[in-house]
Computed example of a mutant assay.
Amino acid sequence: MTEIEYVCGDATAPRGSGVRIVAHVCNDLGGWGRGFVLAVSRRWPEPEVAYRRWYRERATSGFGLGAAQFVQVAPDLWVANLVGQRGIRTGRSGAVPVRYEAIDAALGLLADKAAELGASVHMPRIGCGLAGGTWDRVEPLVRERLSARGTAVTVYDVGG
């Protein structure tokens, strides 16, 4: 098993060389406009354009909770749009938008893509921002789906 590396920095500027995939969690409503996706869009326009098209064509595109979309933004760099959030707001009952089972399924697809490309994976603490999740629930999913398969994972925390 490969250990997760934790660093301070910007996940949209992934460290290292070789093929890299920047992964993040999206919602299932087609909304793109708050949180980490803003940093993604500032760096590359393609992931937002692809996500919005994917959502518009959801009747036939495979879009939905647990799905993953891979967008190449440079010769050795990809962005993974992982649908792991139901809606965008915490409900009146206090239920948060994160769906751990959907993140788990999307991470499985990410693991397959990383293996296919021989890529490392770079991410913020996915599902733990606006989605309302907790890293103590997400980290074991990352370990099981990616690290256990030998995929190098770097998690970026902003600040220092």
Rank of each mutant, 00 (worst) to 15 (best):
D112R: 15
A68H: 10
V138N: 03
E48P: 02
G87H: 06
R43E: 13
H24D: 14
P47A: 05
G35F: 02
G127S: 09
V98K: 04
V22L: 14
N27T: 09
R56V: 06
G62Q: 12
R143Q: 14
Q72V: 02
W32E: 05
A39S: 15
V37N: 02
A106K: 07
A115S: 14
I103F: 03
V83M: 04
A80Q: 10
T134V: 12
R56T: 11
A111T: 09
E57S: 11
T60N: 10
F63M: 04
S61M: 04
V49R: 15
R86H: 13
D112S: 14
P75F: 00
A119N: 05
P140V: 14
E116G: 00
G62P: 12
L109W: 07
L117I: 03
E57I: 07
Q69A: 08
W78C: 00
A119E: 05
K113G: 04
P45T: 05
A80D: 02
A23K: 05
L77S: 00
L65S: 09
R143W: 07
G91K: 14
E101D: 15
Y55D: 02
H122L: 07
V71H: 04
L65M: 09
R143C: 10
L82D: 07
V138I: 15
Y55E: 01
Q85T: 05
V138K: 06
A67Y: 11
A68S: 12
V25I: 15
A80Y: 07
V79E: 00
W54P: 11
A111V: 09
I103R: 08
A59K: 13
A67S: 15
N27P: 05
E116W: 05
R89D: 06
V83L: 08
L130E: 10
R137H: 08
V73D: 00
R89Q: 08
A111D: 09
T134N: 11
R89E: 03
E48Q: 14
A115W: 04
G35W: 10
G91N: 09
H122W: 10
E101W: 06
M123E: 01
A39D: 11
R42Y: 01
G91D: 07
A115T: 15
F70K: 05
W44Q: 04
H24W: 14
